[in-house]
Amino acid sequence: MTAAARKSILVVSRHAHPGSSLPRSALDTALAAAAFDQPVALLFQGEGVLQLLSEQDSRAAGVRNLRKVLDSLPLYEIETLHVDAAAAAAFGLDRDALPAGAEWLDAAGIRALLARHDHVLGF
């Protein structure tokens, strides 16, 4: 794969963890793209913004804590987590408690984000 052929991927995550396996699959896909040095970005919409909550303890549920994976994304050069601001407000998320790379986007920002990626994968 040559640099000229690289197509950008936007992974859109719309479900809450741990009620669905899709958030994990979305992250695995983003990490795989990053591992192959492909340009990839993440957008959290709808209930998907709940993945960003800081005080997650999924031990009692018996599943992995995804917030830890989100916090490790900069290691894979996924620096920005795009967050639908309207969804975040609807679920009462505290802006200060979001992961370091979180960036709030309004509807126009989301449109621009969708438009500048070659592929949009909806999870």
Binding site: M1, R6, K7, I9, T29, A32, H119, V120, L121, G122
Partner: peptide, 16 residues
Amino acid sequence: LGLLVEAAQTADRLVT
């Protein structure tokens, strides 16, 4: 998942 990443690179359209 590398095969999905590869498909994203080679395909003009990737539909979910």
